[in-house]
Computed example of a mutant assay.
Amino acid sequence: MSELELDKLDRQILNALQENNLTSADRLSETIGLSASAIQRRAKRLRKEKIILQDISVVDPKRVGQMATFIVEASLERENAQVVSNFKRRMMAAPEVQQCYYVTGDSDFILIVTARDIEEYEEVVQRLMFQDGAVRKFRTSVVLSRVKTGLAVAIDEGD
């Protein structure tokens, strides 16, 4: 996939929308120096070109009863395309899995998982790890506190 040419204004729009995707085009036009309609056209193009993948709200897990967060390293028995594809599909379908990364190194996957408590996490582990014959081993770290969370990508606005 080739990189779309982004000018300084596109980069400013992306940075502003990553900070708050509900910022109105009128507000952005004041800070960026483009008309609201030009901002809307550019944002629409950035979405069409899949540079902006989603407009989401970040929810505080604890405020909705998800009191525990776990980082899980999972290794598969064998690493063939079908096994990997099946594991990815299962992780994408699991609502407890916030993030899933296919990685190099000692593990095949790194997962970020939330649960109400350790008992609920144990149920998740039973369903996602023990019932999958392709999972050779997994290791869990319990998150003590969130220092920084987010999905913003650092975008240099250039000159």
Rank of each mutant, 00 (worst) to 15 (best):
A154C: 08
R116S: 07
S75P: 10
M129F: 13
V58Y: 04
E19A: 08
A93M: 15
V153C: 05
V147M: 05
L111C: 05
A25F: 00
F109G: 05
R63N: 08
V135Q: 07
I56L: 15
M129P: 07
I71A: 02
D26R: 13
R136E: 08
T149C: 04
R136M: 04
A25R: 01
V142W: 05
L22D: 11
S141M: 09
E19S: 09
I155D: 03
I51C: 12
K8M: 06
V153Y: 00
L22A: 07
A134Q: 07
A68F: 03
S29Q: 11
T140K: 07
A25M: 01
E77A: 04
G33I: 15
R47L: 15
R45M: 12
V147C: 00
I71M: 01
D60Y: 06
G105T: 13
T31N: 09
L4P: 10
V147P: 02
F138Q: 12
S141R: 12
Q82L: 01
E19W: 10
I112G: 02
N86F: 00
E122S: 12
N21M: 09
Q40P: 03
P95Y: 14
R42M: 10
S85N: 13
T104S: 14
A152W: 01
A25G: 05
K48I: 15
S85T: 13
A134I: 08
Q66E: 08
I155F: 07
E122L: 03
K137M: 10
E30A: 14
K148W: 01
T140Y: 00
E77S: 05
D108S: 11
Q82H: 07
I112W: 00
L128S: 04
S35W: 11
D117C: 00
S85M: 02
T114C: 07
